[in-house]
Simulated assay, not measured.
Amino acid sequence: MNSSAAKHDVFQAIADPTRRQLLHLLVEQEMSVTTISGHFPMSRTAVSKHLRVLSEAGLVKEQKVGRETRYRMQPEPLLELKDWLSYYERFWENKMQALKRFVEEDPSENNVPANPRLVDRSPKKESR
């Protein structure tokens, strides 16, 4: 079996919420597996498996420091994800612009009836 076939891509790697949390932890500083494991309610072995997936996707780099292996984030592979998502941003932008126009629209200017759900229909109490 080809070793590159076993590697994970960026999309697979970040699909898991635990791996996304791992990346978040490693943004600012490199950490050992022991330090990282202290942030999660799982075994060191489970954390190591998640780190292996991130490493295979190129999102983290390992470095031996004495007997300890430290991990740090490598953000470059995330550009692939950014490029892929940028195509779909135009759909979000159009929806957001339409929502902004709708929210800022003055209903009295456009003969738009008031939303009946927002009109207070409770009986008025007379004050004495």
Rank of each mutant, 00 (worst) to 15 (best):
T69M: 15
A6E: 11
N94E: 06
L85N: 13
D16I: 03
S48D: 06
E89I: 07
T45E: 10
R128L: 07
V27P: 01
T35E: 11
R67I: 14
S122G: 05
E89V: 09
P113F: 01
S48V: 09
D83Q: 14
H50L: 06
L22H: 01
R67N: 07
F102S: 02
L59H: 11
M42P: 06
T45W: 04
W92D: 09
S32V: 00
R52D: 15
T45G: 08
V60P: 03
A13F: 00
V27R: 00
D106E: 02
K100R: 09
S108H: 04
E89Y: 14
P123Y: 13
A5I: 12
Q63G: 15
S43K: 08
Q74L: 13
L118Q: 04
L51W: 11
E30K: 03
G58W: 14
T35K: 04
K82E: 15
K82S: 14
E105K: 13
W84S: 10
P116N: 02
P77R: 10
N2D: 13
L118C: 07
H8F: 13
V47M: 11
F102C: 08
Y87H: 14
T35N: 02
M31P: 01
Y87L: 11
V103D: 12
G58S: 10
L23N: 03
H8C: 15
L118R: 03
Q21F: 00
R20P: 09
K7Q: 03
G38W: 05
S43F: 14
L22Y: 01
D120Y: 05
R70Y: 14
K7V: 02
Y71E: 09
R117Q: 04
R67S: 15
A5S: 08
F40H: 13
R90N: 14
P113M: 01
Q63A: 15
N2M: 13
R19M: 01
S127Y: 09
R72S: 15
L78Y: 03
I14L: 07
S48P: 15
I14K: 03
K124R: 15
E80F: 09
I14Q: 02
E126K: 05
V47G: 11
S32H: 02
S48R: 14
